[in-house]
Write a protein that binds this DNA or RNA. Sequence first.
DNA 1: GCAAAAGTGTTCGGAATACACCCATGA
DNA 2: TCATGGGTGTATTCCGAACACTTTTGC
Lengths: 233, 233
Amino acid sequence: MTPPSIAHEVLGAVFAVDTDNTPPRLSVLLWERAQDPARGTWSLPGGVLSPDEDLKSSMRRHLAEKVDLREVAHLEQLAVFSDPHRIPGPRTLASTYLGLVRPDSLNHPDAQLPADTRWHRLDDLPPMSFDHAAIVALARTRLAAKLSYTNIAFALAPTEFSMSTLSDVYGAALGYPVDSTNLLRILSRRGVVAATGTVGRTGRSGGRPPALYRFAENGLRVTDEFATLRPPP
Amino acid sequence: MTPPSIAHEVLGAVFAVDTDNTPPRLSVLLWERAQDPARGTWSLPGGVLSPDEDLKSSMRRHLAEKVDLREVAHLEQLAVFSDPHRIPGPRTLASTYLGLVRPDSLNHPDAQLPADTRWHRLDDLPPMSFDHAAIVALARTRLAAKLSYTNIAFALAPTEFSMSTLSDVYGAALGYPVDSTNLLRILSRRGVVAATGTVGRTGRSGGRPPALYRFAENGLRVTDEFATLRPPP
DNA sequence: GCAAAAGTGTTCGGAATACACCCATGA
DNA sequence: TCATGGGTGTATTCCGAACACTTTTGC
């Protein structure tokens, strides 16, 4: 019994926060379809899975090929979208990913986007293709949840930052302001951020120059596994 | 560019706690392979995806067909396992599920298991096929995490229960004892459990008869979304 | 009455929020 | 020296863990 052929694609909701804008906003990388079906709507980057790669490699490859994005600081599986009629044409499952990009990598001169590709603020999305809006929503929910109990912000923040910048990043990702004072306390107690010892430049309208910090690790770590029902010490 | 055919299977790690045993343990439903490859090892139930069903329906269908299990109180996606060589033979992706079964449905007379199928305690697993042990481990981790911030235990507990029974269920799933006193406080403040007003029978060695409770809802609900970085009220 | 199990109440500590106050800089 | 933003300290509140004590049953 040979199984019927079902195509398989990967799709990535790649987020970034532009810390140069005021106030910074969470954005997602989209490209505009020039052909039917769904011409003119905006899609998540992705493509079909090749025979010899696993899903994560496939996702990285498509991000590099389709939207010329090579520096993804974090990439994790979201879910499989499997409605038989989720897109027109032959049946296609979509394995979806959440990707995060540091603002550093956006300003590199060699980080040019293709002409059909653009960052879109999550609070002002264009018409989206197929079920892609639902994927973005799921990714955002996942990100917000993980900000609370992991160090996932390492993949959204610049490598060095002041605490008010970091607080802006959290605010953009969560959608509400975060007190930078308490944020520092929380993240230092958990060993997530550490001071570099250096200070940054003061802003355009004066003010004390900020101490600079960096994330202690460059991979995802769960810092607060149990909200309650903690195991005995 | 027609994509090469890649097979797709669903696999379910279905857990239950037998509250009649002392102490109760978390178990997973497995069947033993009678044929090569991997003859004699134990596998998760599942099978190939049919053209017109989505993944969740497929999972339910295979649980009913393969191990005659019809009452699954909760079913959620875990992850896709996509290593090109995860199993011998043609390349096959596995979409994996966490399933939970109430002890009530296990004792129904019409809930007979096939001859090759058995519940196995998680702390005493037999040799497992392929990457199935990793899937079970992932399912257990997910379950433990969700016990802490959702009402997911509704799918592991009998419909009516004393708090010490419920505390045993949590203890079995988490792997360490849970104080039933505090558990009641936590779950009632969140509106997860409610007293039925009835009392159960006292145990075999005496003791005060317990008040009975039930879960307020029969679907998953997140009760404590933010471990920290809560939104302003 | 005694053992066993369930339920109630209290104390303790940890952690997050809010906010007042102090410090360092540029103009 | 003043406005601006960053940093430090503190009071409050909440919540979960631990544990002692009381209640209700069977034998």
